[in-house]
């Protein structure tokens, strides 16, 4: 993947496919590291599945035999001397509290660090494709020249919108501006 934001899109698609009502995408950056957490309340994985999940030759698909999502994220993290961890509770083990959490740590100053890229575009793609699923996004950048704190919760947006779908283009465009403004500050201060 050319950008970490594409890995985020790919892994979060798995959360949605696992039936998650809410998927949290959290990015915590300091001067030298980036910690990515993707945590969902989907169906989770059994212990057998969890064991094989970082093996590039493992997949849930039956059409062909290779699934690459988590192995690609693991590779991206480990090539910066970082790590990836996956925890999961399968719905059959705990019907109340199930889901999957993927965490990955990256060293940003490592030469093989893949830039985060366009994370706003990833969020818009997720909302466009899955308007009935909720996403909580938080990105904090600290310890550098610019401190950034970005927050988006589709549950709040959904409440304001009533039954207008989140993937109406006007809503998508608004969310794009809402996020960009949090990253860059308002474009027109007089507005």
């Amino acid at each position: 993947m050319k950008e970490l934001s594409l890995n985020i899109l790919d892994i979060t698609e798995n959360s949605v496919k696992a039936g998650a009502a809410l998927t949290q995408i959290l990015i915590d950056e300091d001067a030298s590291t980036l910690l990515l957490t993707i945590a969902d309340n989907g169906s989770g994985m059994t212990k057998e599945v969890l064991q094989g999940v970082t093996d590039p030759f493992y997949t849930t698909r039956t059409t062909r035999s290779v699934g690459m999502g988590l192995p690609l994220l693991k590779l991206a993290a480990e090539q910066t001397d970082g790590w990836m961890k996956v925890e999961s509770i399968h719905i059959s083990d705990d019907p109340e509290n199930h889901g999957t959490k993927v965490e990955a740590l990256f060293h940003k100053d490592h030469i093989d660090f893949t830039p985060l890229g366009d994370v706003v575009s990833t969020l818009l793609t997720l909302i466009q494709g899955h308007p009935d699923t909720d996403f909580l996004f938080r990105h904090s950048i600290r310890g550098g020249e610019k401190e950034v704190e970005v927050h988006m919760d589709t549950r709040e947006l959904r409440e304001a919108l009533d039954d207008v779908p989140l993937n109406e283009y006007e809503v998508i465009k608004w969310i794009e501006e809402y996020l960009n403004e949090q990253y860059n500050g308002p474009e027109d201060a007089e507005e």
Binding site: E156, L157, A160, L161, D162, V164, E168, E170, V171, W174, E177, Y178, E181, P186
Partner: peptide, 16 residues
């Protein structure tokens, strides 16, 4: 700044 009130305006426009 963007506010959720703006979304309510979009909502009113979209519904029709």
């Amino acid at each position: 700044m963007k506010s959720l009130a703006e979304l309510q305006k979009i909502k009113a426009n979209m519904k029709q």
